[in-house]
Design a protein around this nucleic acid. Sequence first.
DNA 1: CTAGGGGCTCTAGTCGCTATAGCTTCAAGG
DNA 2: CCTTGAAGCTATAGCGACTAGAGCCCCTAG
Lengths: 141, 141
Amino acid sequence: MLTIGRLGQAAGVKVPTIRYYEQIGLLPPADRSAGNQRIYDRATLDRLSFIRHARELGFSLEAIRDLLSLSDKPDQSCAAADAIAKAQLQAVQARIARLRALQTELHRMIDQCACGTIRDCRVIETLGDHSLCAQDHGAEA
Amino acid sequence: MLTIGRLGQAAGVKVPTIRYYEQIGLLPPADRSAGNQRIYDRATLDRLSFIRHARELGFSLEAIRDLLSLSDKPDQSCAAADAIAKAQLQAVQARIARLRALQTELHRMIDQCACGTIRDCRVIETLGDHSLCAQDHGAEA
DNA sequence: CTAGGGGCTCTAGTCGCTATAGCTTCAAGG
DNA sequence: CCTTGAAGCTATAGCGACTAGAGCCCCTAG
């Protein structure tokens, strides 16, 4: 049996975050001690560790909610879990592609800067005039 | 002279976003017509285009605020502008590196899934047990 | 028995918008 | 001149995923 602080330490999650997860229903309402303090068991630690790991991999809380409810039904097909993971992989790949375009453009911008005055600064100039860009770098990161 | 709608179209920025930028002081308070509607000149279009382009490159509004105030002082050294751009480049590179680690881990997870039941699902299992991960994929995207 | 460290609730703030509600103004057509 | 509908206005609240603060209570060690 764990207090919220120990649970947080064990799972690598901050205490207010645990309370937040409870509030939004990602964790079930915790049992309380005589003095109204939350007490947790090992199963909750596992669940919280799952959440933390999924967050580290970039899953949204919504996706995690789905994954958790799947993991509670061991006999079902895991196709749905797979689909969520694949969507996440695609999202990650899209973000990488976009960031690479940004990286290129930022590099170009910085390389061209002769580091004189603002008047001649390519960084400022390039920002002001999109047509100076070599590539597209659409919206949304 | 432009209405807010035309300005938005010209710069590729939505109308509420323009009002928001004014509210937080990124754009100066607009002049008003007789009927209290905002009217804009070309200079504001340039400023807004600058903001939009910088946003597309991932700069924060705070960084853009700094860049704009620099661009108003053409005689100063552009070292400060350079520093902001370099910091942005570094941030982008860090995010790419992190996303690549995520990509690898997601790939591994999905590849190992034999697509049977949840009980045997490597996706769910891997999420529940960080030690199954090949690499580190620290916090923060 | 008291000190301090952890726990509790509730509220507000972060970032960069976006959406809604309910109003006024403007430009074009009849 | 009047109507209609688009576009404008203000003000407020919401998103995701927390984080920070205020002000209180509880529990354990010395």
